[in-house]
Simulated scan of single mutants.
Amino acid sequence: MAKVLILTPVKNATRFLPGYFDRLNRLTYDKQQLSVGLLEGDSNDGTYEELSTLAKANASKFRRLRIFKRDYGFAIPPHMERWETSMQLARRNVLARSRNQLLFRMLDDEDWVLWLDVDVIGYQADIVEHLLSYKLDILHPDCVREPGGKSFDLNAWKDDGKQNMHDLRGTGRPVRIDSVGGTMLLVRADLHRDGLIFPSFRYGVESPSIRSCHPLWGKGEIETEGLAAMARDMGQQCWGLPDLQILHA
């Protein structure tokens, strides 16, 4: 049976952590083949303390479970929302660095890495088996706010960003996409070992794999979209499952 590593960066996530671990415990995949790693940074709501408590309570249930802390000194001003346009490049830079830190600290002998955001609040108990069954190196289900609704994770797209996952529904099978998000993302671990990371900078400025112009910061893709562009440059194809939906808070 394949060994799977679930990785989650967290910040100010106290309210989501109990449900996060409840859903992990309900997974039907053999827990002795599942490892879990979380990295907390820059929280001001007691996330690390809550995470430490929950990690101790759940560590014996998985093959490995470790938590890490890495602060970057980044905070969105109180009067701004996290999706404020002016904050996106800096916010995604820190998120990419957090993902890479977590990956490099945690990846051992696993066959697959499943990136899972802490505020994904609904997915089927056999999601790991389901994703692995396709045997695709990079695979992304559709993340929505309500069943059948439009995609929440708009970082997964194709055709220069003209189509999102909700535009690709109806086939019942994987479809080729040009970019991915990180709400839930399955990656073959050897791709990460071969150098596939989440760029913390605008990757691919001269690459034909990226959009001609990002709507917020111009040329180049960062974080999950940067990973997809890098994967394409490595000769890999990203896939989406628009008919498999997971729920975001």
Rank of each mutant, 00 (worst) to 15 (best):
P147C: 06
K162S: 15
K162Q: 13
L154G: 08
G148I: 14
E129Q: 14
L132V: 11
I197N: 09
R193G: 04
L168I: 09
I222F: 00
W157M: 07
I222H: 01
I177K: 07
L132D: 02
E206T: 14
E225L: 01
G182P: 00
P147A: 14
P208G: 08
I222W: 04
W217G: 00
G172R: 06
E146L: 08
G148H: 12
P141H: 01
D190A: 09
W157K: 07
I197D: 12
S179V: 08
G204L: 04
V128L: 04
T171S: 14
I210H: 01
D153W: 12
G149K: 09
P147N: 07
T224L: 02
R145F: 03
V175G: 10
Y203F: 15
L216I: 15
G220Q: 04
D153M: 10
L139Y: 12
M230T: 09
G182A: 15
G149D: 08
P215D: 04
R145L: 12
Y203K: 02
E146T: 12
L139I: 13
W217N: 02
P208C: 07
L185P: 10
L196P: 12
K150D: 14
L216R: 08
F198D: 07
P199A: 00
P208N: 07
L132C: 06
R173W: 02
L196W: 07
L154W: 10
R193A: 07
A189V: 07
W217E: 03
R169Y: 05
R169K: 14
W157C: 09
S200Y: 11
G220E: 02
E223Y: 11
V205S: 03
M230S: 08
L186C: 08
L216F: 11
V128C: 04
V144D: 00
P147F: 08
L191D: 03
W217C: 01
S209G: 00
V175K: 05
E221R: 01
L131P: 10
L131W: 09
E223K: 01
L132N: 04
D137G: 09
E146Q: 12
V187S: 02
L196G: 11
F198S: 06
R173A: 15
S209L: 08
K150S: 13
M230C: 05
R176I: 14
W157F: 15
D126F: 09
T224I: 00
P174L: 06
H192S: 04
C143A: 15
G204C: 05
L227Q: 12
V128N: 00
V175H: 03
D126K: 08
V128I: 15
V180W: 00
G172A: 08
L216T: 14
R211S: 11
H130R: 15
D167W: 06
N155R: 12
W217L: 01
R176K: 15
S200N: 13
M165S: 13
K158Q: 06
N164P: 01
S200R: 01
M165Q: 15
R188L: 02
D159M: 10
I222N: 03
L216S: 04
L168E: 03
P174G: 06
G181E: 11
Y203L: 05
R188C: 05
E146V: 11
A229S: 13
L191A: 07
Y134A: 04
S133A: 07
S200V: 01
